[in-house]
């Protein structure tokens, strides 16, 4: 018996198989469909300690080409910690050319899953004093019967009691992350989260992915000049001086007072003039 207890207690990325319970309060916002199930999200059974890599591999496969949990682990797993840090999951999604955004508030979980985006959640399955850290992927929920559907651990998809899920998720600081495909935007994310994610893709030199986010962002938040500024910087980085000028001018049309935009525009003009002079 004691050996059994030990092996269960020490199994990393612990698994669980709870049953549905009666209705409890939820953080679901108004207008959320009562039942959602994203049937197409692939189920990857995690290897030992690989709940993070397996979760991200599932989210990546949902929006793009399939990736193995080992490939993801190479980018997120920290052997000395026997696990993956949350930031490294974000970084790895970006290194795969996808936009990764964290949730701003718990209700976003329902907004995202309701909009067709599985959410990677970070849970403490145990207690504060006896933590059991774990990553899962939320692929559905039912507000009437009060459960969430998780791709988690080594088992098949699990139906987890809503109250139990919410408690374990609260102990993980309600951390959640969505990965969206090229040109798509998360349902809930705020403008600045998306901007930062796009700029990070740009910083990694993934211009194709960055430009798609800037374009999509400009359509959703047309009042902000920063999307066009980003487009200008990507065009410049790709050697497209005319494209950069067009984008910076579009940014100045929205707000002519931003010195940084004017500065970059001037720089490109200078470079263009020099080039014309040489030829």
């Amino acid at each position: 018996m004691y050996v059994l207890v030990m092996s269960l207690a020490l199994s990393a990325c612990a698994t669980s198989a709870p049953m549905p319970g009666p209705s409890v309060r939820t953080a679901a916002p108004q207008g959320t469909p009562s039942h959602v199930f994203l049937a197409g999200v692939p189920l990857i059974e995690q290897k030992d300690d690989y709940c993070g890599p397996a979760s991200l591999a599932m989210a990546l496969a949902w929006v793009g080409p399939g990736v193995s949990q080992e490939e993801v682990a190479a980018q997120v797993f920290s052997p000395g910690a026997d696990g993956a840090y949350r930031a490294d999951l974000i970084g790895s999604a970006r290194r795969h050319g996808q936009l990764a955004v964290t949730l701003s508030e718990p209700a976003d979980l329902f907004r995202e899953v309701g909009a067709g985006n599985p959410v990677i959640v970070f849970q403490n399955l145990g207690l504060d004093a006896v933590p059991v850290w774990h990553y899962s992927v939320v692929v559905g929920f039912d507000l009437v019967d009060a459960y969430v559907l998780l791709h988690t651990g080594k088992d098949k998809m699990e139906k987890v009691d809503m109250a139990a899920f919410q408690r374990t998720w609260a102990r993980g600081d309600h951390w959640g992350m969505v990965v969206v495909g090229p040109g798509a935007l998360p349902a809930s994310a705020d403008r600045d989260e998306v901007l930062r994610g796009a700029a990070a893709l740009e910083g990694l030199g993934n211009y194709e992915a960055a430009i798609k986010v800037y374009q999509a962002g400009r359509q959703r938040w047309p009042d902000s000049w920063m999307w066009s500024f980003g487009e200008g910087n990507v065009a410049y980085a790709q050697g497209d001086l005319m494209g950069a000028i067009t984008a910076y001018e579009a940014a100045l049309d929205i707000d002519p007072t931003i010195a940084e935009v004017q500065h970059n525009l001037d720089e490109v003009f200078k470079e263009l003039t020099a080039k014309v002079g040489q030829s």
Partner: peptide, 8 residues
Amino acid sequence: AAGGSSVV
């Protein structure tokens, strides 16, 4: 609190 480690 790296996910994956369970220090039970």
